[in-house]
Computed example of a mutant assay.
Amino acid sequence: MTEPPPGTPFPALRVRAQETRTVANVIGVHLYAERDGHALLGLRHPDSPYAPSHHHFLAGHCEQESAIACLIREAQEEAGLVIAADDVEFVHAVHVLDAPGAQPRMQLVFRARAWVGEPRVMGPDKCVSWDWWPVDALPEPTVEYARAAIDGVRHGRLYTEMGWT
């Protein structure tokens, strides 16, 4: 493998073989809300199919909508928060492969600079509580890619890969 040209921000780590089939990536959209050095995380329901009893961002899958429209919709549906599109900025992406052969996921993280309302549990079958946690002392267990994204935001990194080695 040759070295990338100087100034290339993200060198290619792996090139897909010609015979490999195309696999669509699932796109997840996540809210990074921070107040006084504390990040908003929800405790997922123990019966959740993904990450039961783990702390995680307010999040959802991008449907037939833009990523920001998804974030605004999910914030209202999951926590009763009202966010204006002008108050949203992209802060991090995590490209995740949970296991060999699994469907890849691109997790987009957006910061809300402002919102209306206090987080409240809107879907008790999905999330049992919303709490503010110090960004330098996240609760256990926290979903690993959420932890990686918060670390990336705190250190000014825009991108993380997980599970691709």
Rank of each mutant, 00 (worst) to 15 (best):
T2F: 11
T2I: 07
T2E: 15
E3M: 13
P4W: 13
P5Y: 10
T8C: 12
T8R: 13
P9N: 00
P9V: 08
A12Y: 13
L13D: 13
L13F: 14
R14V: 15
R14P: 10
V15G: 14
V15A: 15
R16W: 11
A17S: 15
E19H: 15
T20G: 13
T22K: 14
V29L: 07
H30R: 02
H30M: 02
L31D: 01
L31G: 03
A33H: 04
A33Y: 04
R35T: 14
R35Y: 07
D36Q: 14
G37W: 03
H38A: 14
H38C: 08
A39C: 12
L41E: 02
G42R: 04
G42Q: 00
G42T: 00
L43F: 11
L43W: 09
L43Q: 08
R44Q: 15
R44C: 13
P46A: 15
D47W: 12
P49R: 10
P49M: 11
S53V: 10
H55P: 11
H55L: 02
F57R: 03
L58F: 04
G60D: 04
E63A: 14
E65P: 08
S66P: 07
A69N: 07
L71R: 06
I72R: 06
I72T: 13
R73G: 12
E74A: 01
Q76L: 06
Q76N: 09
V82D: 15
I83E: 01
I83V: 07
A84I: 09
D87T: 09
V88D: 01
V91K: 01
V91Q: 05
A93P: 05
V94M: 01
V96W: 09
L97P: 06
D98R: 11
G101D: 07
A102K: 07
L108T: 04
F110E: 06
R111I: 00
V116N: 13
P119A: 05
R120D: 07
V121T: 02
V121K: 01
M122S: 10
M122V: 06
M122Y: 11
P124F: 12
P124I: 03
P124S: 03
D125E: 10
C127D: 02
C127R: 00
S129M: 09
S129V: 02
W130L: 08
W132L: 10
W132K: 05
W132V: 04
W133G: 08
V135N: 05
V135G: 02
D136M: 06
A137K: 12
P139E: 09
P141Y: 05
T142R: 01
T142Y: 07
V143Q: 03
V143E: 03
R147F: 04
A148N: 08
G152K: 00
V153I: 08
R154Q: 14
R154H: 09
H155R: 07
R157P: 02
M162A: 05
G163F: 08
T165Q: 15
